[in-house]
Structures are given as C-alpha cells and as structure tokens.
Design a protein around this nucleic acid. Structure first.
Lengths: 201, 201
DNA sequence: GAAAACTATTTCAAGCCTAAAGTTTTTTTG
DNA sequence: CAAAAAAACTTTAGGCTTGAAATAGTTTTC
C-alpha cells in the first residue's frame, strides 16, 4: 500500500474539558499536569453544582464518557496508522462493505457511517486509488454508484479486523463480564435518553 | 463575531461500525435505513461471537460507547455552530482558559486538551483574530507564549457554557441519578482498564 | 564560554469533515 | 408528455488534526 498519506490519525485529541472530570483527563497522559490542577477545579465543580437541576452530575458523566471513548479511539487510530498505515475512516468504510457482499450504494455508506455524502466521495476516491474498493455506476439508475471491496481490500480488512478485535479485548481486559454487561445496559439507556431528547424537536 | 468560518461542526459523524451495535447506530438517524439491515447483522454478530475470548462482548460495548459519545458530541457541535457560530475546539480551548485567571502557556493548553501543539497554534491564531483571546510572549522565557481570555472572550464563553450545561442536562434527562452514578462508576473502571493496558508498553 | 542537548512553538503536507451550492438523472405531477 | 420536484452525487470553501521537520531560545556540559 506504500504510504498513502503522511499522517491522518489523531494521536492526541480528547477535547472538552468543561468541568474537568476531576483529575482524570489530565492524569491520564501527563503526570506533571496534576499538581497544577486542584484549586481551580474545586471552583469549577462547585459552580457547576450550584446550577439548577444538578447539571454537574450530568456534565461530569458526559466528560468521563468522552474521555473514555477518546482514549480508546485515539489508540485505535494510532495502531491502525502504525501497524497498517490506515486511518479509522478507511477502516470503518471497509467494515461496512465487508458485510455487503454485493457492494453498497454511496448514499447508504454515508447513512450507515453517519458522515456527510461529500465526505464519502473523497474517501472512496482514495480507496479506489489504493485498490481497496471498486466504484461502479449502476445500470438501473445512472445516478447511483455501487462501492464494493476488492479481494485485496477484503484481505487487508480481515487482517485489520482481527487485530482490532484483539486490541479492544486487551484494552477492556480488566473489566469484568459483569461490569461490561452493566455498562452496555446503562449505555443503552443513555442512548435512548439522548435519542428521545433529540426527537423532541 | 460575524461568521468566522463557513462550517466546521460535524453534523453527522459516528464512525466505526464493526459489528454494528445491532440496529442502533443506523436507527438513530435515518428511519429508512433500518429495513435494509437485519440479515447482514446477524451474520456479523455471529461471526464475532465465535472469536476467542469472547471479543464480541467487548466490541459491542465499545461500539455502543462510541455511538453514545458521537451522538452527543455531534449534537453539541451542531448547537454551538448554529446558536453561537462556534466550534467545539474553540469552546474547549476557552473552557481551559476560563479557569486559568493568569492565562495559560500554549504547551499547557496542548497537553490539557490532548491535541498536538501545531493544532493549538492555528486555533489560537483564529481566536486572537476574532478577539476572544490574547497571546503574549513571556518576558521570562521568550520561547513561551501566554494565552488568556479577553473580557469579550470570557463573556462569550459564559453564555455558551450556560447553554452547554443545559443541553447536556436535557440530553441526559431520562437517565436516573442512580443509573448516572452506575455509569460514572463503571466508566471509571473502564478508564482504568484502558490506561493500565496502555501503560503496559 | 562555546558546543550540545533540550524545550517551546511554528510550519508543512495531507487526510478528515461539514454545510451549502451545483450537476445529472429519475420520478412525479399537472 | 413536459415542467417541476426529488434524489444521488460532486464540488467548494474552510475549519480540525496529526506527525515530522524546521526555528528559535534556554540550559547543560565540558
């Protein structure tokens, strides 16, 4: 595949730090940061706690959630880049295609990946260039493009998917099955809460 | 502030779909997608379940976690853009600065926000241009730049922070305090698991 | 005190991502 | 059927992000 791009992953990243999940965002990566933290934080948190309806609890939960997913996501991006010279969006796109034997329409890819159509255009273009996918104009409807994995693309993806599953398993190593179940369950509730709130518009 | 940029938020986005958190990633945003889903998915999940050490459970948990945070994050980006013509990175940077009365060194910002230094350079540049922050070369060490909120920046930030806390509270509305506590707690465990795994390198 | 090592920041190339404004093709409607 | 509407993409401008290389200033070492 020979270096399609110079960089692309985000090795750092983990925005959002509003009331900073007490000592936890910072202490995760830079030991020397912690000492500078305590006094400000108390203020920040106190302030938040005083707002109506206990927003503080929700905010802290949100920040911790974000910290977790960013931490994991960054690591996966880094490994995909270092070990496979691949980005997460490329991996995701191939993951979608893997289960669509007959290929998938560009718009469908966009919907499933929850990214804008214009984004997919360029992403697919690069994947075509590197020989991972093909793009065919549909005979039935000439507006439509069908994207499918090449056998090379499929082979590459299998390698990455195996490694990926392994990385996740190792990262989640210490979590007991029971806690995993609880998390999964409560995150489901959270998702429903968010979706419900979003629907109220 | 008059339109600093044309776009910037990601209204969609929510990559990763490896074994697709059954019916949940897709059904969240595009009603018409659901019908195309069922058969592929079962296969996907079955396959994953068969892998050693029950990676499937971890993978599903990871995907659900990612779905949740992406969902919330996208919405926040969207609202920041629509209601305040601001991006999440800008908001985050100001949030960091808000609790640093005397300003903060660029490198410190980079560490706290967990993004690369080169990124902060441009972000700060734009915030200086729009009058939200100031950038001063330190007298003690001329390599160092001290970034601080202007009073305008502070005022703008306060408005956004208030709205932001409110958005989160509304999104988390349905979650009981008890479930919130459980989530917060287990996410703490998860974070420790991840950090531990990352340290083993 | 000069050379070497280290630190803070900027610059660069390239990919990611969005919203909005086109383009082309198909479907709907009067 | 022809005009209008809708659908599937592509294009464009512009912000975000990284890793690596370069710049400039400070500290350490001999």
């Amino acid at each position: 595949m020979k270096a399609l791009f110079k960089t692309a992953g985000r090795a750092y990243k983990a925005h959002h730090a509003l009331p900073p999940d007490a000592g936890t965002i910072a202490d995760v990566n830079h030991d020397n940061v912690v000492k500078t933290i305590s006094p400000d934080w108390v203020d920040g948190e106190t302030k938040v706690m005083e707002s109506p309806a206990d927003h503080g609890q929700d905010l802290r939960l949100w920040l911790r959630l974000l910290t977790c997913s960013t931490l994991i996501e960054s690591e996966i991006r880094r490994r995909l880049r270092e070990q496979f010279d691949c980005t997460l969006p490329r991996f995701d796109l191939m993951a979608q295609l893997e289960r669509a034997k007959a290929g998938m329409v560009l718009g469908e890819l966009s919907k499933r990946m929850m990214v804008s159509p214009g984004n997919i255009t360029a992403l697919v273009e690069r994947l075509v260039e590197s020989g991972h996918v093909t793009r065919t104009v549909s005979a039935a409807d000439r507006r439509v493009q069908i994207i499918a994995l090449t056998s090379f693309g499929r082979a590459e993806f299998e390698k990455m998917a195996t490694a990926h599953a392994d990385w996740i398993a190792k990262l989640f190593d210490v979590i007991t099955a029971r806690d995993g179940k609880i998390l999964f369950d409560r995150l489901g509730k959270l998702k429903r809460s968010v979706v419900t709130a979003l629907a109220r518009d």
